[in-house]
Design a protein around this nucleic acid. Structure first.
Lengths: 202, 202
DNA sequence: CGAGAAGTTGAAGCGTGTCAAATGCAGTGG
DNA sequence: CCACTGCATTTGACACGCTTCAACTTCTCG
């Protein structure tokens, strides 16, 4: 999906990673969210005009699409589903506020620590961590676009995190060696993710 | 409403200004949105656990509250209202993404120009502009907390905007002298606000 | 008329950006 | 199997936007 396009369907990431991005007219690009398996996106089929952000796959990814009509029918048919969709939208908004806060208040080191924490926790919540680590196909360039830093500075900051024993990061895998200290370093507090309630509403 | 509190009601700003803020454990504060008359907030009564952000009045303000039960009844009773509320939530999310982009990609000058543009347009959309200007009760300190800058640098940047003839800002009033150039300076494109459709859905 | 909040100013320092080049690594084709 | 290509990562030197600190001024309002 491209920025400015009229969205036609709701997408669910089945497999793989994707990003949601916004682009300024002069080309600067901001990644506004990472999407991992289980994540919904483009719920804004309700907003009739153009999409304000773009979606792109980071890895080879499988994506399920639900047409607008089906989506609305689903919402109408089951209050339980409607509620779950509300819940999903609201917790996505909460994550977006946390990103705003990160970019506004945290420095490079805290920002990256926080982002790594968030992604690890989100993957953990959907059972996608193994042996204390997780897949991590994000390039330092993408991290730069997500954190509002340059890739050069991202590189230096990651080296610092490694040196401080907080993470291992290589071969597209992230291992938070000391997730507690990583969370402290990033002033990370998982509440904003609103995780845990696998069954919600009713 | 405080961060960490269990939200009880949906609020509507009837009159006056408010802010939605997030605070880090060490005290740093980020303003994640400004709320002007007509704005809804704390729709997250659906998220059962704690509020991830706080609400505070900036000026003397009148606020209407809708209890959770009434709110849900309203949604259930009228698909039209439900749809409007969805629309409201989705466009709020869009604004939040734009803020993320601002903090990540725009420099101080662009950031402030963009924010002033946004607020002016939002006020304009609800008929709260007069003679090419609008009320502007936001202190430079608040602007700093919203843009992730220091108040000192906000001050200098505003002086620059004044000097460049883009705005007048005094006595709690903002006058965008040249809104077109201000928008250009802030790389502002109003699409993300999803304004205009006063009657929506159906 | 006094006191606190908001706005303004100057000088110095630091975090992050910029530019440029080197290195490593995976895929491709000869 | 090796040259070739392109992308991701790493490194160094230098520049600059923004912060910090501290003082001063101007407003607001009881």
């Amino acid at each position: 999906m491209s920025q400015g396009e009229r969205p036609r369907a709701v997408h669910v990431i089945v497999d793989g990673w994707a990003v949601s991005t916004k682009q300024l007219i002069d080309g600067r690009r901001q990644i506004v969210n990472f999407l991992v398996p289980g994540d919904l996106c483009a719920t804004n089929i309700y907003i009739l005009d153009r999409a304000d952000h773009a979606l792109a796959a980071l890895t080879h990814a499988r994506v399920a699409s639900i047409g607008a009509a089906d989506f609305e029918a689903m919402m109408a048919a089951s209050p339980r589903i409607a509620r779950a969709l509300w819940w999903n939208e609201l917790s996505a908004a909460s994550v977006q506020r946390e990103w705003t806060t990160s970019l506004g208040q945290r420095n490079a080191y805290e920002r990256i620590a926080h982002l790594l924490c968030e992604l690890y926790m989100r993957l953990h919540a959907v059972g996608l961590t193994q042996r204390g680590g997780c897949e991590f196909p994000i390039t330092q360039n993408d991290l730069a676009d997500a954190t509002g830093l340059t890739s050069v500075h991202v590189n230096r900051t990651i080296q610092q995190l490694r040196h401080d024993g907080l993470i291992e990061l290589h071969d597209k895998r992230l291992i938070p060696n000391d997730i507690k200290r990583l969370a402290e370093a990033g002033l990370f507090h998982p509440d904003y993710l609103h995780l845990a309630p696998s069954i919600h509403g009713g």
